[in-house]
Design a protein around this nucleic acid. Structure first.
Length: 509
RNA sequence: GCUCCGAUAGUGUAGCACGGCCAAUCAUACAGGACUCUCACUCCUGCGACUGGGGUUCGAAUCCCCAUCGGAGCACCA
């Protein structure tokens, strides 16, 4: 005989009435970051580990924000560690070390500790020696392709069974620079028959004879650790409790697990997130960007078209907006592809109340006002916040946006915002007459409200991701250097310089 | 080729560990409307999703299997 929910409920009432209430309580949905698996009283240690081979971008930001946010919530230590152990292929950029630190601070994620992997080479060498002594690692002389064949066939390569003493001898020769690049590599023994080929005897050190860009390191070392080794050692030495990183490094945990087992260490708790892509920015690689900048395609790493933090900062995006954006996204393993609009919406909420309003006329055209009276108007700096007024002197000519008047006909009436109403008297040349300043008239005649600027305004250039806008703005804009303002009917901008005319970076609509 | 992940509205996201509270959350986008001397802000309203197929069960977004699609690893990159 089949039972339905009603029977169940009835039966529950007789067996355990105290559970009925629980059955009907609504669960509250969580927002943002999930709680971390933290032991009672444990303080967390987390890190963000970039390779400083370019400036931080929106992609790197997830690592900065999420890790630092967890540390803020649980108390503990946030470490930035520069994984700069590749002087060749992903060669670090000297300036980028500082850029990361600057941007972290800007994002309110100042690290408690800064670690540079290339400072700790001796530590890696020590553990390498230990593993070689224990017989858990070996120096392999196979050519890349040959090793792959062995590996794919689940067969050990001829060097795998060398005695520790032999391996140590080879290791010392490696360190002494006696082998050429690619001639020898240190591998960690895992399980050569592991069903996942990615797990079989992975590389830990290789020879690179290119000098490191950091002057304090330079050509001091020719044997460099690979990420899985360097990261494994550092994470333990630094006492990491939790690791959150991209899912491209998912296999790292399994590989590094061998090292941790051999050394008797406990692996930190790990979480992964998927790839983040922004709709507006296609695929971009740090090296590709670098090339484009050198070619002059972009003005620099803070070109408004780029997704670097420096560019977003210059455009007036607030760090709080970026933090919220990243935190609300959570840490799913799905690859996400999201739109800048979401970030802009977050930012707009913050800047709308703080940005003063000004007129900026793009594609300006002259509009002569017949019988104009010279006067001064004082529009508010902000529509709802009480922050005082602007001061604009008017003569007989105004400048307005071409798009606002190009289809105008004689007899059309327009409201000049905060000024007066006009009626077009001539189209070519464009002339009008003032027909009073009554707002009621403007409303009853359903006049379009447009903005304007006096003819002696200041030249303004707006640099936006979609291109440049040239026009004229109110003189008073020069008081707003470094502030985010709103050019009415145009969008928000950060005033970048006021030296020779105004240069503004477009924030968003 | 082998291996490992993942899949909820246009875009993100909550719910999945422990199956009924889900006629599925929130945000953003979009559409309509209100307000407004900005195309901004604010406020209402609407829109819109459990990848597909089997199975288990009284009951499946949730558990199991298969398929499809997407991502990743098997580097002397990080």
């Amino acid at each position: 005989m089949k039972e339905g929910p009603e029977e169940w409920q009835a039966r529950l009432e007789t067996i355990a009435p105290e559970l009925i209430e629980e059955l009907n309580t609504k669960k509250e949905p969580d927002k943002g970051l999930k709680p971390l698996d933290v032991k009672e009283g444990e303080s967390v240690v987390m890190r963000f580990a970039p390779n400083p081979n370019g400036p931080p971008t929106l992609g790197s930001t997830r690592g900065i924000v999420v890790n630092s946010e967890y540390v803020k919530r649980y108390g503990g230590k946030f470490i930035i560690r520069f994984d700069d152990t590749d002087p060749q292929t992903k060669r670090p950029m000297l300036e980028a070390y500082d850029w990361y630190l600057e941007d972290c601070e800007w994002l309110d994620a100042k690290p408690d500790e800064v670690v540079i992997a290339s400072d700790n080479m001796e530590v890696y060498y020590d553990y390498a020696r230990q593993l070689l002594e224990m017989g858990h690692a070996y120096v392999c002389f196979c050519e890349g392709g040959d090793f792959k064949k062995f590996k794919d066939a689940k067969e050990p390569c001829p060097h795998r069974d060398h005695a520790p003493e032999v391996n140590l001898e080879h290791w010392d020769k490696m360190l002494a620079g006696e082998y050429e690049e690619k001639a020898a590599v240190v591998r960690i023994k895992t399980d050569i028959e592991h069903k996942d080929p990615a797990m079989r005897d992975f590389g830990a050190f290789r020879i690179v004879k290119t000098a490191h860009p950091r002057p304090e390191v330079d050509d001091k070392y020719v044997v460099w650790p690979l990420l899985d080794f360097e990261g494994a050692i550092e994470d333990h030495v630094l006492g990491m409790t939790h690791i959150i990183r991209g899912k491209d490094l998912m296999d790292s945990e399994k590989r590094q697990g061998y090292i941790y087992n051999y050394l008797g260490w406990e692996y930190p708790k790990t979480t992964h997130w998927g790839r983040v892509k922004m709709h507006e920015f296609g695929k971009f690689s740090t090296s590709g960007l670098r090339q484009s900048i050198e070619d002059g395609e972009y003005s620099g790493w803070d070109d408004p078209r780029l997704p670097t933090l420096r560019a977003l900062r210059r455009r007036g995006i607030k760090p709080e907006a970026i933090r919220k954006f990243m935190i609300d996204m959570g840490v799913g393993e799905t690859d996400v592809s999201l739109s800048m609009d979401t970030l802009y919406a977050e930012n707009r909420k913050i800047i709308d109340t703080i940005a003063n309003r000004y007129f900026f006329v793009w594609d300006p055209v002259e509009l002569e006002v017949e019988d104009a009276v010279c006067c001064t108007v004082n529009p508010s700096l902000h529509p709802s916040e009480d922050r005082g007024v602007r001061c604009i002197d008017i003569g007989s000519k105004l400048l307005v946006c071409k798009s606002d008047v190009e289809s105008a006909e004689v007899g059309d009436m327009l409201r000049m915002k905060d000024l007066y109403n006009i009626e077009i008297t001539s189209v070519s040349p464009l002339k009008c007459k003032c027909i009073g300043d009554s707002m009621e008239d403007a409303k009853s005649n359903k006049m379009r409200i447009i903005h304007w600027v006096p003819e002696d305004g200041i030249p303004v250039k707006v640099l936006a991701p979609q291109g440049e806008f040239i026009g004229i703005g109110e003189k008073q804009i020069v008081d707003e250097l470094d502030n985010v303002v709103q050019f009415e009917r145009f969008g928000f901008c950060r005033i970048d310089s006021v030296d020779d005319g105004v240069v503004a970076y477009f924030t968003h609509k």
